[in-house]
């Protein structure tokens, strides 16, 4: 065994823990050591860093750049000379996005949707997770897979399947509902879509909770049982408080997903044109890009998407802060 191996324990290299106190008195020899270790660290990080830059930093950079430009005709005449030039327009596209009625209307719709859908889904996911984690269920693996299965179905396919279920002419259950029930009307389509996403993502969120529950030391339950706690009390008083951080993660992911709601409304809109091409902000962005909504082009589309990212980020931060405060006061 060499010194080097000792400095690099099996699980994690010491660079990962920069706050190690004995490292304080630095001498020249140590510094050199550290230099080579840093290089190793960077190499370890390289796969992540490269992919992070290629698939994250670069696209965001590109979309910030294109949000600052607009495509304007190069010449005069009815067809603008048949050529387009990228013109720097500063923050015009952001001003357009911020001042767009349809954008905020879409935001309003997804907010309304989120206020209803996220709590229902999170509570259902937590409930299923607690059920599978309890001793009531005989074959948790089978159920875990079954609940997770909807998530494995591609979003557009699932949306189309639901569209069929909601279409009176072909639906297997709509004859049983009162005559004239419209599941895709202005008053009901948000609920119908909530149903679709809840069906898809409850299993996914359940897995997050289940993973968190699995980390809870079993001794806690034994201790509680010895103290005379019932199964219900264990679930409510021990398990639920201990999966708080998992709940935070699940809600944050749901908020981000909801702001970007796209597959479901697009499929619904195809059969229900009254919804329009800008029903959700993501649809507005996509259709601006495609020219189905004016002003069109990469400029406005990029501005919309950056604004959406900012809003989703802000919502996520607000929620996380609220949770932390609640956690601190509890």
């Amino acid at each position: 065994m060499t010194m080097t191996t000792n400095a690099l324990p099996e699980s994690a290299p010491p660079e990962r823990k920069p706050a190690a106190p004995p490292a304080r008195p630095v001498n020249a020899k140590r510094k050199r050591r550290f230099g080579s270790q840093a290089a190793t660290g960077w190499l370890f990080m390289a796969p992540f860093a490269i992919l992070f830059i290629v698939v994250f930093v670069v696209p965001i950079g590109v979309s910030i750049r294109s949000a600052l430009f607009a495509q304007k005709p190069a010449g005069d005449g009815l067809y603008g000379g048949g050529e387009i030039v990228d013109t720097f327009v500063g923050f015009d596209n952001f001003a357009l996005a911020l001042g767009s009625d349809v954008f905020w209307l879409g935001m309003g719709r997804v907010t309304l949707y989120a206020l209803f859908q996220i709590p229902v889904m999170i509570v259902a996911a937590l409930g299923l997770a607690l059920l599978l984690d309890s001793f009531l269920v005989r074959r948790p693996t089978v159920f875990r897979l079954a609940f997770f299965l909807p998530y494995a179905i591609p979003g557009v396919i699932a949306a189309m399947m639901w569209l069929y279920l909601y279409t009176p002419e072909v639906s297997p259950f709509m004859q049983l509902l009162p005559e004239g029930t419209d599941l895709m009307g202005p008053g009901t389509v948000l609920l119908s879509m909530s149903n679709m996403t809840t069906w898809t993502y409850t299993g996914y969120n359940m897995l997050i909770f289940l993973a968190a529950l699995q980390t809870v030391p079993r001794e806690l339950y034994e201790a509680a049982r010895l103290d005379g706690a019932s199964g219900w009390q264990i679930a409510m008083k021990i398990k639920v408080p201990l999966v708080r951080s998992a709940a935070l993660l699940a809600v944050l992911l749901s908020i981000i997903g909801t702001v970007q709601l796209f597959n479901e409304p697009v499929v619904m809109e195809a059969a229900n044109p009254w919804m329009g091409k800008a029903y959700t902000p993501m649809m507005l962005t996509y259709n601006s890009m495609m020219g189905a909504i004016s002003p069109s082009g990469t400029g406005p589309a990029s501005a919309y998407s950056l604004l959406m990212a900012a809003i989703a980020g802000a919502l996520a931060i607000v929620y996380a802060l609220l949770q932390r405060r609640k956690g601190a006061s509890a």
Partner: peptide
């Protein structure tokens, strides 16, 4: 293509 907004009105 942006006149597809007609479909939205037509649907109403």
């Amino acid at each position: 293509a942006s006149l597809t907004k007609m479909n939205e009105t037509a649907s109403n």
